[in-house]
Simulated scan of single mutants.
Amino acid sequence: MNLKQRSLAPLLFIAVVVIACAPLLLWMRSSPPLALKVFDREVYNLEISYQMAALFLAVIVIGMVYGLSGKKGLAYLSLKRRDGQIRPEPWIGIKPKETESWKNLGVNFAIVITLVTAVVIYFQVVHGGGVSLELFPGVLLIVGFALTNAFTEEVIFRYSFVAVVGKYGFSPYAAQGLAAATFGLVHYFGNPGGIPGVLMAAFIGWFLAKSMLETKGFFWALLIHFLQDVVIFSALFMK
């Protein structure tokens, strides 16, 4: 085996791990291995059961990534690294000025992506139905589940690829492409779902991987995903 083949092995390995995690998460969503009975509403019990199992899976993935990339890979989990130079992407309108950095781009896309998610979720989940939401514990659970779900999915579908690509010097587009493909396909069965869900999730997977690569941190990916999940869980718990 030559050097090029050896260096490609970690990326192939983590790709197989993430691809295996996708159906496993779908299975845990429909049949949580933990059967917690904490709340009066069954929808809350099902969600907390899933979130605890998925969080455990994310920890396992972090361990695997650490084995492949060491401390350099763990550094991408930093929440302190919030700024960095933006790589231009003219095909989607990312043409940064000299004074612009990720502090600007992160805020702008957090607002835009959250608004787009709200519109899609409204027409897929909320539109035409009666809605109500418990202030307690509903709102607290929305925030908690949004945070754990965002962390879990960012670790599995973004951080895994970014850390390995960063360690072994692959093109950043390798991480962004793999993040887009895996996150997009798994959302065919999620919320938002179907083809619109696939396209939206693929773009978000691509963009959030870009944020990690260029800031060398976890902040914008976690925040943007968290805001999306607040919208999604709010809609789901209103039904």
Rank of each mutant, 00 (worst) to 15 (best):
K103Q: 05
I121K: 14
Q228F: 02
E214H: 06
E154N: 12
L3Q: 15
M1N: 15
A209M: 07
I232E: 14
L222D: 00
V59I: 12
F207Y: 14
I92R: 12
F203M: 05
A110R: 04
L68K: 06
G177V: 11
L140T: 01
I232P: 13
I204K: 03
A9Q: 14
R81A: 02
L55W: 04
L185T: 03
V107W: 13
G70F: 01
L68C: 06
E100V: 13
T215L: 05
M28N: 07
L24M: 13
F207A: 02
Y50K: 00
M64A: 14
S7K: 15
I224D: 14
V164D: 01
I14M: 09
I142C: 00
H127K: 11
E42P: 06
R87S: 12
L178W: 08
V38D: 00
A163D: 00
Q85L: 12
L57A: 08
F226H: 03
V198Q: 04
Q228Y: 09
R158G: 05
K216I: 00
I142T: 01
R82H: 05
Q176G: 10
G144H: 01
V125G: 08
L11H: 05
A179S: 15
L222K: 02
M52C: 07
V126K: 12
R29F: 14
S160Y: 05
F151D: 00
L115Y: 09
L199P: 03
P32I: 07
W206K: 05
E154M: 09
G177E: 10
I19E: 11
V155C: 07
S211M: 03
A179I: 07
N108K: 12
S30Q: 14
P172G: 04
G193H: 00
L227Q: 12
W91V: 13
K103S: 11
I121D: 15
A146F: 01
G194E: 04
F237K: 03
V65C: 03
K167I: 02
I142E: 00
A20H: 07
G129W: 06
F161D: 00
E100C: 14
S211I: 02
V119Q: 13
V119W: 03
P32G: 05
L147K: 05
K167M: 04
W27E: 14
E42D: 12
A175T: 11
F189L: 06
L26M: 13
L36Q: 07
M1R: 15
W220Q: 07
V18P: 09
Q51M: 00
Q124E: 15
V162R: 02
F161K: 00
F219P: 02
L79T: 11
F207P: 02
E134R: 01
R82P: 08
K80Q: 07
G67T: 02
A180H: 04
K71T: 13
M238F: 07
